[in-house]
Design a binder for these strands. Structure first.
Lengths: 327, 327
DNA sequence: CTGAAAGCGCTTACAG
DNA sequence: CTGAAAGCGCTTACAG
């Protein structure tokens, strides 16, 4: 691997001049610039990022922490972050924190600092950022919390409302609202939004707590749904996986969708799309979340942290499909 | 951020001694070691990786390139790579090369080199590694190619055989084999394995080419399947998404699964699991692929490239579920 | 067991 | 427009 000295020698100039050409900085005569560029091309020279980072204290790296790549929401977010960052010349240092383990989270933050990342994007799902990193930080997937931390949040309250309003418009009479642990702010907001909309419309509803978002949990929840509750004609599912298992259980029970049972999911994932019947769902716009988070962190780096508005909101929207009556 | 000089000053020793404590190298008296460690802890000192990388020419970073995070196969692979690498103290520099774009691929490789990665793990799916990187390289998801490049390959030929043998054992009479573009080695091997097993058993079969693995392609392929072919009682699907849409189309046509139609998928993804009925599939063991690739690259780095056996094989296995007759 | 010093490959004032 | 030199924060022979 050639160094900047090699290039300088070959061009018969000093390393300072080569550096100026590399960084498009300072004045360099066209002639020397062309000469240097030709040599760079021909030698396949690439500047050593470690040396740059050491001096400039910026690495061009962004640390990204997510709990689960198999969750299509996170997969979409990461894909969008990567596409956005690459446009600004940044690269992703990835940490998959399976199961949202606090120790692994802290280790990842430490490793990010050690690697001089310029910023950090992290999912806030059921994790507490302890010793706040010294780098610009953007959290996504958290609740609508006003604590002056930079966040990209999906408006879950509106999302819950949207799910409920969809069922109201399509003539549901009695709704079961599924929800996950209310200790998680996004879940709670979503739930409250749905309750508010149904109450406002004087619609009858019952609620079912589900333990988590694994397939197994969804299957037993779907089974419990039909044994525990009666006379309901619509469900706001905890998410798309739950919506899917409810649809399957309903079909096993010969319950017609959407005539006898309407279902609204939450996520906007592929699961809702591949299902038969396809499922109406509240789309969280994962890739918008990722793009927004990527742009946010780049802004923060450019303007030396401190955003005027630490909250960037992403509005969910409804994808109407076959599991609800036509509106 | 404190530097090694700050620690040395506080401890009243030289930076060399601090460095020795940091790296557990050389002889240091217990007393000074304890003192230095105490100060490190108390100041939250973390060594600057850029400085280390600059001197040692190793960064602790592994570049990883994959084409699609939404594909559960890749999601599993990356998750397993990350878990494996973290155990050895390495971190992932991620590049999502959506659509397997050759230019983006080359750019990512260049960025990896610039960042002094210690090794590269890349999916080989429909991409050609051009100017071979100077770093240890492990390719996965490629065909069984004997070109002395380090590869983790799923034995697709066996996979195809397994799919066919499963149907043979469960009494299928006429099979349709779906397959993607045969220009892709893994696809071709899979196809050839299935054909070989069916031929060997003197079973009748027909073949259907599918364009790709998107949901749309799968849907139209599934539709075409039932209009184009007749009298078949089993399908080896191009992958799990295709298997899923075939199952849905069959149900729409009132064809009973598995009595009137048996289906075998390929991937071992969640899609085959969430489906109703659940789908028998050939599991590629994505997380084994990831773990193997992670261990492979660590081995290569330790032993200065050049593996004795540049091919590490992962054996697929059948997951018997409801879409085939009990064996 | 410990320290002084060179050097890893860059960038950026500072001079000219 | 260009160069000599200092310095970013480490590690590792080399001396002692």
């Amino acid at each position: 691997m050639p160094t900047i000295h090699d290039i300088a020698d070959l061009a018969g100039v000093s390393v300072a001049t080569v550096s100026r050409v590399l960084n498009h900085t300072g004045r360099v005569s066209d002639k020397t610039r062309d000469k240097i560029n030709a040599i760079i091309k021909q030698t396949n020279y690439v500047p050593n990022q470690a040396a740059r980072t050491l001096y400039q204290k910026r690495s061009g790296l962004i640390g990204v922490i997510i709990p689960d790549l198999n969750n299509p929401f996170y997969a979409d977010v990461v894909t969008a972050i990567d596409a956005t960052l690459q446009q600004s010349g940044y690269r992703i240092l990835l940490a998959v924190n399976t199961g949202a383990n606090q120790t692994k989270y802290d280790e990842s933050i430490a490793a990010f600092e050690q690697n001089n990342v310029d910023g950090i994007i992290s999912s806030d799902f059921s994790i507490t950022p302890t010793n706040t990193p010294t780098k610009p930080l953007v959290l996504f997937n958290s609740g609508l919390i006003d604590d002056n931390i930079n966040r990209v949040v999906v408006d879950n309250y509106s999302g819950g409302q949207l799910a409920a309003k969809t069922l109201i418009k399509s003539g549901a009479q009695k709704v079961v609202i599924q929800h996950g642990p209310l200790s998680l702010p996004p879940i709670r907001e979503r739930f409250e939004g749905a309750v508010a909309a149904l109450t406002h419309a004087h619609l009858d509803y019952e609620i079912q707590l589900v333990s988590d978002f694994t397939l197994d949990a969804a299957r037993s929840a779907a089974e419990a749904l039909f044994t525990t509750f009666h006379d309901f004609d619509a469900v706001i599912a905890a998410n798309d996986i739950h919506a899917l298992t409810i649809a399957q259980q309903a079909q096993a029970n010969q319950i017609k969708i959407p005539q006898a049972l309407q279902i609204v999911g939450f996520d906007g994932s592929l699961y809702a799309e591949v299902s038969q019947p396809s499922l109406t769902t509240v789309d969280q716009h994962a890739s918008t979340v990722g793009t927004t988070a990527g742009e946010f962190i780049v802004d923060l780096i450019k303007h030396h942290s401190s955003a005027a508005h630490p909250l960037r909101l992403v509005k969910p929207s409804v994808r109407l499909r076959e599991s609800t009556m036509p509106q």
